Simulated scan of single mutants.
Amino acid sequence: MYRWCTNEVEPGDRFDYWREVRARGLFGVTAELDRERRSDFFGEFSLRQFGGAGFVELRASHYTVERTRADIAYAPGDSICVYQQLGGGGRFDAMRTGDFAIANGSFATSHTDQPYRTVPLGAGGFHLRILKIPVSGLPTQDKRVRELAPKVFDDAAIAPLLATCFADLCEAPANDGGPSDAAPLVQALAHLALIERGVVQPGSRRGQAALRVARLSQARRLIVHHLRDPDLAPAMVADLLGISVRHLHMLFETVEKSFSQTVTDERLKQSRRLMREAPERLIADIATACGFESLATYYRVFNAAYGMAPGDFRAQASEAH
């Protein structure tokens, strides 16, 4: 992961450096800020590579960003961008299609080589994530992809799928451009965006694959969220997802571990974490907190997975520290 912050530059030069080197040189945009406000400017970002895609998280003081025709000619991108707005929200002027506001937690999409202007709502500045996916890396070679002007997501059914894929991507390890376990997430996010924009049909092979990846991601996150519940079962998760139990099991058939194996694995990982973080806590309490139906079941499952009893694992963890 590459991180950069304006604290690395002298205060009087921070906005000029951000404008010329970071905004124009790295992102291909024009940044503007009144001169009297530049001395207080702050900006930071992180950049990770997942295959050919770039994933940026950016925070910055209030200023104006524009992607002009001149910027596009100077630094063409030919990529799909999926934006997740965080913080106080922002306003986009999409030039061709008018302006729109994007609230905290909401998503927008565009092709990089469509002009736009954006500014934060309120005085809080920018906070957003941007996934930039080269069109050349997409199996969908539809000319409409390059015509996508910035637009906020209107589909209430797809937005939660985007959110869970973005959350998984935030937790995925970077891979500096090589093969990545995050590649299916990147492809899913691209195709979910194209479903929302009407370029990919949800019932198509690519649409179904994207929906499957996103729903599996949602299912895994629901499992982690409900680990303590001893009634955690396929019917419960399927109901929360709004799908059938059969559909849920079909999602897990595409990966190495079944639903029940995933639940057990997550409960074991949680128990190991709790033993490391709270060495004084009773093992029986940890077993209950992780949703095991009994202490005997916990010992049996733990020993089968790791070849030792929970107490032996805790002793080893203590010695390591």
Rank of each mutant, 00 (worst) to 15 (best):
P184W: 01
H249P: 11
F153L: 12
I158H: 03
I243K: 08
L248V: 09
L194M: 15
A156M: 05
L240N: 03
D176V: 01
D142E: 04
F153P: 02
V152Y: 07
V255E: 15
L162Y: 06
P230W: 04
Q218V: 12
D176R: 08
C170D: 10
K257M: 13
T140C: 06
R212A: 15
R197I: 03
H191F: 09
V237T: 11
Q208D: 12
L211H: 09
P202W: 00
A190T: 06
S217I: 14
A182G: 07
E171W: 00
A159W: 00
R246C: 07
V213Q: 10
K257C: 13
A174V: 02
L162A: 11
A174N: 08
L211C: 07
V200Y: 00
L222R: 09
E171C: 11
G198R: 01
T262S: 13
A167G: 09
T164R: 05
V255G: 12
V199A: 03
A233V: 04
M236A: 11
R146T: 13
P150N: 03
S258I: 05
A214I: 02
A174P: 12
S204M: 00
L227K: 10
S260M: 04
A210F: 05
V237S: 07
R221S: 15
P150L: 06
V186T: 02
T254S: 15
I195F: 03
A209V: 04
V152G: 15
V245H: 06
L194P: 12
V213W: 04
L162D: 04
A163L: 01
D176S: 09
A214E: 07
A210G: 09
T140Y: 04
E171P: 05
A193L: 05
G178L: 02
A190Y: 00
Q218G: 13
A188P: 08
F259G: 15
S244L: 01
R212K: 11
L192P: 09
H191R: 13
E171L: 10
